[in-house]
Design a binder for these strands. Structure first.
Lengths: 192, 192, 192, 192
DNA sequence: CGATAAACGAGACGGTACGTCGCGTCTTGGT
DNA sequence: ACCAAGACGCGACGTACCGTCTCGTTTATCG
C-alpha cells in the first residue's frame, strides 16, 4: 500500500514541486521556467511535459501539494480575536519573505491562467467555508446578528489588506489591523 | 513653435499606446510583446526600444497617457451617495468589457512589476488625495467623525470589490455594493 | 548500425552546406547570413547556432564537406606536364563560373577569418604533401635536382595565378601558364 | 589658393581618413563602422554619407589619400638587388604590425567591393608601370633578355610572397626571399 | 521469474520573442 | 550651402525557452 505516488503524477513529483517553489521564490514567476525546474529537480524536461501542459499547471500542483496555503483557523473565544488573528495571518502571508513572492506571483498570473485561477478560487472558497464555524460561534455568543454576511465581512477585511499591501504598497500596522477589524465589526453589528 | 510632441517620446507615441492597450486587452499581459506592439502600431521594434527599456515601461506610459485611469469625483450631496458612486465606478472599471481586461491584468501584474507598481501607487495616492474633499464635505455635514480614517474606508471598500472580483471571482451585485457601503459607513460612524 | 550522421553535425547538414555555398556564390561573403542559410536550407536558425558558433564555422564545414577542395593529382609522365596540369586546375578553380565566386571569396576572406584560414592552411598543406610524389617522380626521372624546394615552386606558380586573377584582375591565358611553368622549371633546374 | 580641401570631399576629410585607418588597424574591417568613424573623427554620420555611399568608398579614399600604398622604387645597381629590395618591401607590407591588417583587409574585401577592387587594381598597375625602368635598366645592363615578361616576373615573386603569408600562413625568411629571387631570375635568364 | 507496458533520460528540432547593433534615410534647425 | 543632432525603418545578430518529437533505457507490475 505504498501511497508514495499519487495518481496522475511522475515518480519524482515531490522533487519537482520543491524545485518549482524554490525557483519561484528565488527568481520570480518569469524566472521560473520548465527547463530550470527540470534541471533543478534532476528530472528531464520531457517528464514534466508528460504530466503537465504548462508551467502554470506545475505551479498549481506544487501549491496544492505544499502546505503554503494551509492555515490554522483561530478560536480565541471572541469574534474580534478571531478576526484579528485571521487579519494578522493574511498580513503575514503577504509580507513574509518566503510566502510573499509566491502569493503575489500566483495572484498576478491568476486572471489569465485557468489553473492558477482555479487554485485561488478553490482556496478562497474552502477558506470561507472553514470560516463559517467561527461566525456561527460568534452568532451563538451573540456577538453577531444572524443577518450578517460573513463573506462580505471577509471581503472587506481581507480585501483591505491585500489592496493596501499589493496595490497601494503601504504598510499594514497592528493599529491599522485592529482599527479595520473594529470598524467592520461595528458596522456589522449595526442593524440593517 | 509646434509643441506637438512631448519630450521623451517617439513621434508615434499615441499609436504605440493604443496598440499596447488593445493588445493587452486581447492577449493578456504575457501575450503582450514588444514585437506585436510594433507591428500593430506600424512602428519599428527598434523605435520602441529606443524609448522604453521594457514592455512594462511602455505599458505604464500607455496607461498614464490613456484616460482609463481618469475618473470623476462624485458629489451627490451625501457621503453614502458619494461612496456608492465610487464603488460603482470601481466595479464598472473591473467588469466593463473594454476596461476589465486591461485593468485586471495591470493590477494583477503590478506587484511583480516595478513600473506598473509605481503607476498603481501613484494612481491610488492621487485618487485618495482627490477623495479628501469628499470626506471633508461629509465631516462638515456631520456625516462622519473627525477621527475617521478616509484611507481605511477606501481600502475596505475598494479592497472588497477588487478582492471579490479578481481573486474570489464572485459577482458584485448592486445589493452587495450598497450593503458594503452601509457596513463601512456605520462602522466608521461608531465611536472608537 | 546506421552511420548516416557523422558526429558533431545536425541532421540536415548537407542541406545547410549546400545552401551555404549557393548563397556564398550568389551574394558574396557579407551577403551570406545565418538567417539566409537557415531559410534557404529549410532549417531553423537555432539549429545552425546549435552546431556552429558563427558563419565562418558553417562555411568552413561546408567547404570541407564539399568536393570543391578535392582535386586530382596529375601524373602525365613529365614534371612540366604535371605542373601545367596543376596550374590549369588552379586557374580553372579560380575562374569557372561555379567555383570562382566561392573560392575567390573564401580565399579573400581567409586572412581575416581564423576558421577559413585554418581550412586554407590545411588544404594547402595537404595539397603540398600530395604533390610530393610528383616531385619525387621528377627527381627519379632526372628532371629536377634533389635540392629543389617543391614548396617554393608551388608558391611561385600558384601565387602568380592567384595574384594575377584576384588582385591584379588580369586574365590568365594558356600561354601565360606555360610561360610561367617554363620559367619556374628552368629556374629550378639552374644550379644554386 | 587654400588647397586644403580637394573637390568632392567634406571639410574634415583628413580627420575622417585618419579615423578610418586608425579604426581599421585597431578593430579590423568588421569593426570599422561608419558610426565609429563619425564618432572618432568628430564628424556627424550624415556628413560621411553625403560624400561617400558606403564604408568601402571611405576606406578607398582614405587609402588613396594616405601614404600607406606609397613605396620607393629601388635602384641598387643590379636586377637581383632591386628585386630583392622589392620582395623585402612586399614582405614588410604584409607583416608589419601597422600595415598588415589594413592590406589584408582591403584585399579580402576587394573581390566584392568595386571601390576597393579599383584601388587594388590601380595600385598594382601603377606599381608595375613604375617597375618598368627597373627592368629596362636590367636589360640595358644585359642582366635580362628583351623577351622577358616583367609582369610575369613580378606575378611570380609577389604572388609567392602573398600566397605564402596570407594563404599558407608560413614564414618568409630572408633565405626564402633570396632563393625565390634567384630562381625567378635564372628562369627568366634561360632562353625561351 | 520473466514479459511487457509505463515511465523516463537524452537531446535535436522548429519556432517566437528577446534586446542589440549598425546601416542608410530623413527631417529639423543653426550657422 | 553646409553641417550637427538625432529619430526612424530595416535587417541581422546571437540567446533563451518554449513545446514537440524520436529513440533507447530503466522500472515495476503482472501473468
Amino acid at each position: 500500500m505504498s501511497e508514495e505516488r499519487a495518481r496522475g503524477g511522475p515518480r519524482q513529483a515531490s522533487a519537482i514541486f520543491a524545485a518549482t517553489l524554490e525557483l519561484l521564490a528565488e527568481r520570480g514567476y518569469d524566472g521560473l521556467t520548465i527547463e530550470s525546474i527540470a534541471s533543478r529537480s534532476g528530472v528531464n524536461k520531457t517528464t514534466i511535459y508528460r504530466w503537465w501542459p504548462a508551467k502554470d499547471a506545475v505551479l498549481a500542483a506544487a501549491l496544492v501539494h505544499s502546505d503554503l496555503l494551509a492555515f490554522a483557523m483561530p478560536d480565541t473565544g471572541s469574534l474580534r480575536g478571531d478576526l484579528l488573528a485571521l487579519a494578522r495571518a493574511i498580513t503575514q502571508l503577504l509580507t513574509a519573505e518566503q510566502t510573499a513572492p509566491i502569493v503575489a506571483t500566483v495572484l498576478a498570473a491568476a486572471p489569465r491562467r485557468p489553473e492558477l485561477a482555479a487554485v485561488a478560487r478553490t482556496f478562497f472558497a474552502e477558506r470561507l467555508s472553514r470560516e463559517q464555524p467561527m461566525f456561527q460561534r460568534a452568532i451563538a455568543r451573540g456577538e453577531l446578528q444572524t443577518t450578517a454576511d460573513p463573506a462580505m465581512i471577509m471581503d472587506l477585511l481581507a480585501g483591505a489588506i491585500w489592496f493596501r499591501i499589493l496595490l497601494r504598497d503601504q504598510p499594514v500596522s497592528p493599529d491599522y489591523l485592529s482599527g479595520a477589524v473594529d470598524l467592520v465589526l461595528q458596522g456589522a453589528a449595526a442593524a440593517h
